[in-house]
């Protein structure tokens, strides 16, 4: 394992900014339930949750500094997840 993989020290400032963003997104996902979005309700909730988990994965879990292999693996998992969602909604959106 090469030494420079571990050189990245993320500043408290970055972490704080991400934390604030996560809190804002949480507030939005609560607030947005006041608006009647119809069939888009679930889409909105999943979308906001995805953005939040992306932030956590990239910064808090250091995916940004990992080697390409792990990025690809996480990416493929997301592709599987998206397909599962799409197939589920083949049921709900066509009933």
């Amino acid at each position: 394992m090469s030494q420079d993989e571990h050189k990245h020290v993320v500043s408290y400032k970055t972490y704080t900014i991400i934390l604030i963003n996560l809190l804002i997104l949480t507030a939005i996902s609560v607030a947005v339930t006041e608006i009647e979005l119809g069939p888009l309700t679930v889409f909105m909730a999943v979308f906001l949750a995805s953005v939040k988990s992306a932030l956590v994965l990239i910064y808090f879990m250091h995916l940004k500094f990992d080697n390409a292999m792990y990025k690809i693996m996480v990416g493929l998992v997301l592709v599987v997840f998206v397909i599962v969602m799409v197939i589920t909604f083949l049921d709900y959106n066509f009933r």
Binding site: I83, V84, I87, L90, D91, N93, F94, R95
Partner: peptide, 16 residues
């Protein structure tokens, strides 16, 4: 991606 084959008579949409 095949889990729905347990639910063919449960009332899913035709597309599914």
């Amino acid at each position: 991606f095949v889990w729905g084959h347990h639910m063919f008579t449960a009332g899913m949409s035709g597309t599914a």
